[in-house]
Design a binder for these strands. Structure first.
Lengths: 193, 193
DNA sequence: CGTAAAAACTAACGGCTGCTAGTCAACCAG
DNA sequence: CTGGTTGACTAGCAGCCGTTAGTTTTTACG
């Protein structure tokens, strides 16, 4: 019980940190800023977390772990390559909508990780990209996809999904489903008629 | 002549600042860091620039001015809507390759602009996006493009081009022309066969 | 060559940073 | 009721920040 309360406060700090890091950047967010947002003095937060760096670590690796485990799951299905890639695009859009602040931090502020954690994060991201790229490559080999450069396709897809987090709000006149459908159409069928 | 030398030093500071801001962020770059990179004490740079904020302003508005003037030029040509959009994509890729650091700063660090400059920058960007979106809208109305949501198409294109700056290096086994051709194919014709 | 302007330097300021130490109240198990 | 753990507080340290002031060196021109 006591443990649960502790976890709640800790999670609150992590959530608010993600929002602030997204809005003002890791360097632009002070522990005093974060304390004000959480409703606590800066020093008090050290009862729940060990350092500012640790907050960034937890956020970044939580996101990368999610992507990696989901990729592994999708790889094991029996779907076509097109459908596997669709599933990955779906995953990216869904995470952007559901946990946009954390994803945004993992995308933009990972470079402020401590040297060793930075290396680990870059390696994790590289592994994810390798797995994603392999799906594209196999899809091309199987004749399901256009014979474009694999890296170009990979990064274009990964980037094309990022803006969602900056733009999408419920009540913009477009639902999450419509949004996803539009992006999927664009990436798979293109803009030209 | 004396003026020219002054401009050179000033430009050197701006160029190195763009590189450092890109690598470590605006907040993560100190004037002492920048001085070391330029080969000068931090204080000495104030003979050439007025403030750290001013450096960011110059970089950001230089980029946005370039985009806006090029858009105006493209709007006035007699090409088809598809070709106008292609020209804009070409512009984005070319600027990313030629002046990647500055474009990166304008994309990522604009939020650290001073309040009034921030407002002006956001307005400029909004105007650019409006002009770009209008071309897409007209292209759809003319039957040249697929009837997707205009905003989705706009932001997908704008984002899909951003990664170039992080990834492209001459000698990666792909030329700028091939890169552009691949991206153009993906965005206009899609990944699926 | 002399002189004035341009551009570099050193030193330092007030303010903010992440974080620690020490204290004290609230709570909960025995 | 009591003892101890938890989690909040205030105060403050050492260090970096952007920037200014004042001084000295370098440069360019008549």
């Amino acid at each position: 019980m006591a443990k649960k309360v502790k976890n709640n406060k800790r999670q609150l700090i992590l959530d608010e940190a993600a929002k602030l890091f997204k809005a003002k950047g890791f360097g632009g967010t002070s522990m005093r800023d974060l304390g004000a947002q959480v409703g606590m003095e800066a020093a008090s937060m050290y009862n729940h977390i060990n350092s500012k760096d640790e907050i960034l670590e937890i956020i970044c690796f939580h996101v990368s772990d999610t992507y990696i485990s989901q990729l592994a799951q999708i790889e094991q299905t029996q779907a076509s390559y097109v459908d596997k890639i669709k599933a990955l695009i779906h995953l990216h859009i869904r995470l952007m909508i559901e946990d946009g602040a954390a994803v945004s931090v993992a995308n933009n502020d990972w470079k402020y990780l401590t040297a060793d954690k930075l290396e680990a994060f870059k390696q994790a991201r590289k592994n994810y990209e390798k797995g994603f790229a392999a799906l594209i490559e196999q899809g091309i080999a199987a004749g399901e996809l256009q014979p474009v450069n694999t890296s170009v396709a990979l990064f274009t897809i990964l980037s094309a999904v990022r803006w969602v987090e900056l733009w999408y709000r419920p009540g913009r006149g477009i639902t999450a489903e419509e949004l996803e459908e539009n992006i999927m159409t664009l990436l798979l069928n293109g803009l030209a008629k």
